Computed example of a mutant assay.
Amino acid sequence: MKSRLPQGFGGGPQNMNSMIKQAQKMQEEMAKATEQIEQMDFSATVGGGAVSILMSGKKEVKSLTIKPEVVDPEDIDMLQDLLIAAFNECMKQIEDTSSETMGKITGGLNVPGLF
Rank of each mutant, 00 (worst) to 15 (best):
L83P: 04
S98A: 15
L5G: 03
V61P: 00
E28T: 14
G48P: 07
E89D: 12
G47M: 07
Q7A: 15
G48A: 02
M16T: 10
I20N: 04
M55I: 10
E69L: 07
T45Q: 06
M78V: 04
V46W: 05
M78A: 02
D72C: 08
P73D: 10
S56R: 08
L5W: 12
G47T: 09
A50T: 01
D72V: 04
D75L: 00
E74M: 02
D96G: 02
M30S: 01
K58R: 13
G12K: 04
K67H: 09
S18A: 14
Q36A: 15
Q27N: 11
T97E: 14
G10A: 02
Q93D: 11
A31S: 11
V46D: 00
C90K: 05
V71T: 00
K25L: 12
D96I: 04
Q39K: 15
N17I: 14
M26Q: 11
L83F: 07
Q24D: 09
D72P: 03
D96S: 12
G8Q: 07
M19R: 11
L82M: 01
M40K: 15
A44E: 05
Q93T: 02
Q36C: 12
I20L: 13
S99T: 14
V61E: 04
G8N: 11
I94T: 05
L83D: 05
I94M: 09
T97M: 13
T65K: 13
K32L: 11
M26H: 09
K62I: 09
A44T: 04
D72K: 04
S99P: 03
M30C: 08
Q27P: 03
I66K: 07
K25Q: 15
K25P: 03
M40C: 12
G10D: 06
L82F: 00
K67F: 03
D72I: 02
D81W: 01
P6L: 13
